[in-house]
Structure formats: structure tokens, C-alpha cells
Design a protein around this nucleic acid. Sequence first.
DNA 1: CGGTCCATTGATGTCATTCAAGAAAAGTGG
DNA 2: CCACTTTTCTTGAATGACATCAATGGACCG
Lengths: 210, 210
Amino acid sequence: MSITATARTASAAIDAIERLGVRETFAKDEEIYGQAEPVQRVYRVIHGAVRTTRLLSDGRRQVGEFYFPGDVFGLETGPDHRYSAEALCDCEVLSMKRSAVREDVAAADLQRMIWDATIRELDRTQEHVLMLGRKTACERVASFLLDIVGRNGGAGDLPMSRQDMADYLGLTIETVSRMLSQLQSSAVVEFDALRHFRIRNPQAIARLAA
Amino acid sequence: MSITATARTASAAIDAIERLGVRETFAKDEEIYGQAEPVQRVYRVIHGAVRTTRLLSDGRRQVGEFYFPGDVFGLETGPDHRYSAEALCDCEVLSMKRSAVREDVAAADLQRMIWDATIRELDRTQEHVLMLGRKTACERVASFLLDIVGRNGGAGDLPMSRQDMADYLGLTIETVSRMLSQLQSSAVVEFDALRHFRIRNPQAIARLAA
DNA sequence: CGGTCCATTGATGTCATTCAAGAAAAGTGG
DNA sequence: CCACTTTTCTTGAATGACATCAATGGACCG
């Protein structure tokens, strides 16, 4: 499929989701949907950012994914959600009922969009598995920074806390902090604020991310 | 959707995949498809078992998933495979071209089957993330044994080597071996052969798997 | 029966965690 | 705008879980 055809399909689907969808705003840390709630809606980030998380009974937490403007989330598939979704900062999302997809004339485009988003989700989750299973702390942090920059058009903005990063990377906040300091002191990245960095040595960070 | 409707859809799709598909046999450790090869076919295990793996440049290996009779694999979505698939033991698989799906009269059933299998894959991969990110070695091994039993109708057969288990669980073979010994000595499971066990204390293993 | 491969077990090492303290940033109320 | 509190982040020291290194044991196969 050509790039233009993909773009056309995507924009048609976005038209449909905007026509059928509901805009909602969420305050920082507010729950968008909860673990074990039934799966009913599909969401798209308008602005702000979202995280999905899962808790073990003793409080250990795993962040499944972060979502930025344009990203679709809530695609899980069982009858119930396995992860909950929360606003990372004050944000706005568009959501529509899954059942509405079947009834709409643009259903084909929408279903195509949902399929594409699901595939993308699976790809990213498989990459996440590789990272958690076989990468060192330093490699995980480097991969993460590189991923953020790649998804954000080159900008190094971190809307999430160190705890969120740690729970995404399978590490503790102390280890994340140490690795960030280490990457900075070796001139791979540079932080000009707690949550804003830029890459100083693209080759080095690419090598670390493996 | 009711259980009977699901079963009917599934069997119609299985009919279609059997009509359109090609049976192939693979010897133990033979490659079914390779990392970075284009995604062209969908596969279903007839008998035997399959693993998907991904290699880092320095040889570290991550096993993505194990597939048993009835399971569908090769669902990755990008233009190219991110994981390779290999026969875990001598096995037989059925495969069909993705492009054939569009042309077949039973396409709706088939697409439904592919969708269901993709969702299942995503669920399992998210569970894998949680395990690798936040569970201890002992919990990982316990979760794995429980999963195997659950997928195999209660039988504790391990068609994979300790190395395969380790690369799935993000551990070393020594650690896997130690945890198995530990679970056995605490009477949680019992091995009567290297690759065959049974659960002696279901509550204990469920608690460990968290 | 002997070789090869795979799994287990022990001794030691290392990387990430935990515990603890302090510094920087963000929020709050005057 | 400035004290004050609270939260978040960083850094250091000690501990611990898993990895690595090394040797032995057991299964499979010709």
C-alpha cells in the first residue's frame, strides 16, 4: 500500500472518530478507565499524555505504555481491561463506543484504523518484552530516551515522572536517576531541565539502545 | 457474543484455513521464518510446538512466545518480522498466504479468526511485559509452569529446553534450574522427568504466580 | 559402552535494589 | 513575592538477587 493511500485511509478514519467521538478532559493522575473494567470505548489522545498501568496485589506497578497526541489507546481486547489508563498530565482525549464502529458508514475506515493501531501496539509491546527481558538498566534508559525523541519529532520532553519511567522500564527510580546522570556525564544526552533533554551524541545513544 | 457463535465462527475459519492452507513439516530447530523477512503468511500449529525468538547483535536472545497445537502465529504486522519462528521439536504447521484471505469467500470468518488471534497475542504479550518487568525469578518460573498447564489441559509437558525457558523468562538457565529445584523441594511441583511435571500444591503455585 | 549434550549444583562476582540522607523543584498560604 | 511545606529527584553506602564461572551428574544416541 502506498503512503498516500495510507494517509487517506487514516484521515477518513480520523474524520469518523471525530464525528462519532466524545471529547473529554482529565486532570493529572485521573483514571480514564480501570483495570478489570469492561472494554467499551476506543480513545485517541488530543493533547497531553496518557499512561496505562497494571498493579500486582502487593503494589508493584508496571507501566504498559505511554500515549501521546495522535496515539490510539484502549485497544485491549478481552472482555475486560488488563491495564488501567490514567492521565499523565492534564489532557484531552477523544473516545467513541466500540459498538458505534459497526453502525457507521465509515466503518471500514475505522476498523482499518483500529487494526493498524492494534498492530502498532503489538509491535511496541514486543519491543518492550525484548527490552525488559534482555537489556541492561543503561540500555533500557537509552532506548527509552531515543524512543521519546523519535515519537515527538525530535524533542526531548518527558511528561512522566521518574517513577513512571522506572515502572515502564522495570527498574527503580534510583537506578533510572543514576543512569540519566551517567548518560549526561558521558555527554550522550544533556538535561537543561528535569524533564527536558536533548541528544548530544546520536551514535552513542543508538549503540546503547542496541 | 455467545460461546456457540464463537465456536461456529472459529470452526468455519479453520475450515477455510485448511482448504487454503499448505501443510508443512519442520525438523527440530528448523527456521519457519526469519527475523527481518517480509510478513507473508499466517500459520497454525497442527502438532509439535514453535517458539519465536529475537536476537540482539551481541547474541543475547529473547523468546517471544511458545505456540502449541491449535495456536496461530506469524501475526506480526509490520512489513517485516521482528521475531523469527523456529520448530521447538519436529512439528507440522499449516500456513496460508495473507493475500489469499482477501480473495476467499470465507474471508470474513478468516479475518475474524486473525483478529481474535491477534488480540490473544496482544494479551499474552502484555502479560509477558508484566512478568519481565515486575516479577522475581521464582514468580516467573511459577507463572510459566502454571501457564503451560493451563494451555495444555492440565498436563505438565515442557517441549522446550531450559535455555528456551530462560530466554522466555529473562533469566539464565542456572537460575531457572535453581528455581525449579526450589519449587520441587518445597513440594509445589514434582518432576518425574526432566521435561514432565505435575502441580502438587495448586494454591501455592497460584500465589507465587501472583 | 563411550561420547555429546543438557541440566544441576556450588562458589564467587556484579548489577541493580534497598536504605538513608540531602538537594532541588513545585505547591501553598500569607 | 516570599517563607514554608511537600513532593520529587539525586547521590551515597550497604545489601541482595541473579549472573557468571566452574565442576559434576544424568540423559540421549550412535
